[in-house]
Design a protein around this nucleic acid. Structure first.
Lengths: 232, 232
DNA sequence: GATCATATATATCAATTGATACAAATTCAA
DNA sequence: TTGAATTTGTATCAATTGATATATATGATC
């Protein structure tokens, strides 16, 4: 009998006994995260997850209620992982944006933010990387869209947008800055999706450094209006 | 009885008789393209496609052999659409790259290439937009990966990479240039994926112009090394 | 050790899915 | 018109899927 009526976030008695179940739950979650991230909600079967996690089918129901509950649990885990990896840098920027911010200071924060994001995304090994999961859910909303949008997408875009506005001393409108923000973030996540394919032709390089350098250069060119804008 | 033993690309007798079938085939293909692009191969059922196309289930088998064949036909249609929309601009660049190319000329070609790509991708209405289909297949290879990789991804990346190398007068290594190319292309496709979500907060703006302007500015900053590269 | 909550395993169901056999209708050439 | 090829429609199958009823095993507390 399941221990909870709301299986998506099962209640756990305070007593730390029965720890084995927690490990099983974590193992299922890790397998599901990789599987869903790779192939999407519909492509992955519950049996496949159960087999790879070394459990039997009803274990998924026992721990997560149903397939959708497992998927939502993955989304929550992803949000937690992002907070763990990006929370500090994001909070620093949030705090700085509370008071007037000089363009150069904003630029430095922007670089630090994107460098942290690049490191966070490119450091996580492929199967456990949360980027593809999030990308998929944003591109074609599924059960976890609202969570990921409210907890990751919107705050991320807004933070980057605000920093870009400050970096350019208000030369860009809110919409223009938002377009830049989405373009920069998308370039990162898109690069990550293409990474396995890139490694197919080019060898293994220090892509983290290369990506951070490219983004830093792009951020540098943000506040400057002395470009020689040639023809279209 | 199906008219062909290789249903993926059914043979059609030269006589233009029986034209009604060709229309039905096109209708199924259009519906499938939108459905697969939105939700991926596994999420879409053959019945759903048949219903939306106004045909019955065996019609899919009759025209495309099986679900996989229909999916591959979608991939081929996407390649054709890309060729139609981008072929001219791409060929111009290919021709120019045959002989030595001045940085400013390469930069102009690069701008024109990305402006065309942005227009092509952002102009196509959401449901019929091929970008999501391609993105999905590149991020997690499915039945159509080889086609899209060989016909779209690799040539596209290579062309942009070569133009970037020429624009920067060889200041960037092949790998560095490739990273920039993937980042720029990914930013476009990623932006497209986020567009429905963006329109949720910001209103409807002329995103085409904004995106083209942002990319042009980024291209302008490519060949210049007088940046004030501050802290990380 | 008794007892109960927790955890795992077996067997099975109802619904959906891709695919097919086969019949009926339509279209074009002779 | 006749007839053959093409196109559309009906009914159904075998496999897979998510989920459940239910039995067994394990761990904790007294």
């Amino acid at each position: 009998m399941p221990r909870s009526a709301t299986p998506a976030t099962p209640l756990r008695t305070a007593s730390d006994g029965y720890r084995k179940g927690e490990e099983t739950r974590a193992r299922i979650l890790a397998v599901a995260l990789a599987a869903f991230g790779n192939s999407g909600f519909a492509s992955v079967t519950t049996r496949q997850i159960a087999r790879e996690a070394g459990v039997n089918l009803p274990a998924l129901t026992y721990y997560f209620g149903n397939k959708r509950g497992l998927y939502l649990a993955c989304a929550h885990a992803i949000v937690a992982r992002y907070r763990e990896g990006m929370g500090a840098v994001a909070l620093t920027s949030y705090a700085a944006l509370q008071e007037p911010l000089a363009p150069d200071a904003a630029r430095a924060l922007l670089k630090r933010l994107f460098a942290a994001l690049a490191r966070f995304l490119l450091a996580t090994p492929g199967a456990q990387n949360p980027s593809l999961f999030v990308q998929r859910e944003i591109a074609s909303p599924g059960p976890a869209f609202e969570i990921l949008y409210a907890e990751l997408w919107r705050p991320g875009i807004e933070l980057a947008t605000d920093l870009i506005v400050q970096t350019t001393s208000g030369q860009l409108t809110e919409t223009e800055a938002q377009v830049r923000a989405v373009l920069m973030i998308s370039s990162l996540t898109g690069f990550l999706s293409g990474l396995p394919v890139i490694a197919r032709t080019a060898g293994k390089a220090d892509y983290v450094a290369l990506v951070i350098a490219a983004l830093a250069r792009q951020i540098d060119s943000l506040g400057r209006d002395d470009q020689h804008c040639a023809d279209i």
